[in-house]
């Protein structure tokens, strides 16, 4: 049981490399290759895996041969995308600071609700007469509309 995921991962990795190798090829071709894999030869697939690994190696080789260029571009890429990720997280309220701010806002809202209900209660206690006066008026208007 335990080595099943491992085997799956291995297959996925191979498909990944095959994907690099097959880039530009029609998806249908690749799917056909997958479909035939179990029964027939895996030659096509292995060939693609080989080409993928080859390409991967070449990319790494190229990067090694121009360390200035490759390393700088890679670092600039990652930094800049990381910066954008941070900004996006803040905008979405996914950073801790933003989450804290959200909590604070919710806290203030809750306190405002309490204050509001208290003020309502005080107002009701201070002005009992207006309410009593208002009640008969409503009753009167109901009568007129029913006629």
């Amino acid at each position: 049981m335990s080595d099943k995921p491992k085997k799956d991962m291995d297959i996925t990795r191979k498909v990944w490399l095959a994907g690099i190798g097959a880039y530009g090829r029609a998806l249908g071709d690749v799917q056909d290759a997958y479909a035939k894999m179990g029964k027939e030869t895996t030659k096509v697939f292995d060939d693609l895996v080989g080409r993928g690994a080859d390409l991967e190696g070449k990319v790494k080789f190229a990067a090694k041969n121009s360390p200035m260029m490759a390393e700088q571009t890679v670092r600039a890429t990652v930094d800049s995308v990381n910066d954008r990720m941070d900004r996006m997280k803040a905008a979405l309220g996914l950073t801790e600071a933003a989450a804290e701010q959200q909590d604070q806002i919710t806290g203030i809202e809750a306190r405002l609700d309490i204050m509001e209900s208290k003020i309502d209660a005080i107002l009701a206690a201070v002005t009992p007469t207006t309410k009593k006066k208002a009640a008969p008026k409503k009753a009167a208007s109901k009568k007129t509309t029913s006629k």
């Binding site: 995921p5 991962m9 996925t12 990795r13 998806l27 690749v30 799917q31 997958y34």
Partner: peptide, 18 residues
């Protein structure tokens, strides 16, 4: 691929490609 590799999802290669 990475999500599959990290064990969060389990997806067949064909489905992943699609």
């Amino acid at each position: 691929f990475d999500l599959n590799q990290q064990g969060f999802i389990r997806i067949s290669p064909i489905e992943a490609a699609q």
